[in-house]
């Protein structure tokens, strides 16, 4: 990240955090500011901008926004798993479909489709994961940027 644009303290509003939504516009990041119990830090990087939100419970969510203003990746880390239905938005149905299995997998979850990649890991007290849209990565940005 080259430039740290802003560090904004957000007032304690709303009951639980809501996150920007994969595949949607910058405004979904902005709307978080109205509802979050936490801090938002934004930065501009090589080919994308990064918005980092620390929720009151310590969960860190990063949102990756393309120059066209679309959220193409999100990542999270914290003591609990954030609401993936909120984070993944329209892609959540695809996630559920692709992660369904007829036998129980006792392992970190990996979902790989052409349109959506989701990876989750961790253990009690520390969960992490990331999701991105392979077809929506900005030019020159690799998937490893979403971390």
């Amino acid at each position: 990240m080259r430039t740290l644009l802003a560090t904004v303290a957000i007032a304690l509003l709303g009951a639980r955090p809501a996150w920007a939504v994969l595949g949607q516009g910058m405004s979904s990041v902005s709307s978080d500011q109205q509802r979050l119990k936490g801090r938002l830090r934004s930065a501009t990087g090589e080919g994308f901008s990064l918005h980092e939100i620390t929720a009151a419970d310590g969960t860190l969510v990063r949102e990756y926004v393309s120059p066209a203003g679309e959220v193409f990746g999100v990542s999270w880390r914290g003591p609990a798993v954030p609401d993936l239905a909120e984070l993944l938005g329209d892609y959540f149905a695809l996630f559920q479909q692709a992660s369904r299995s007829d036998v129980r997998r006792h392992r970190p979850l990996v979902v790989r489709t052409e349109r959506l990649v989701v990876e989750m890991g961790g253990h009690v007290r520390s969960f992490r994961g990331r999701a991105y849209l392979p077809e929506r990565l900005p030019v020159g940005v690799s998937a490893s940027a979403v971390r």
């Binding site: 304690l12 969960t59 609990a80 007290r125």
Partner: peptide, 17 residues
């Protein structure tokens, strides 16, 4: 404990456990 001090402090900071 499964959660520890994160879940015994202020409820505003408690994870959903």
């Amino acid at each position: 404990q499964d959660c520890g001090s994160a879940c015994s402090g202020p409820v505003s900071r408690a994870p959903a456990v």
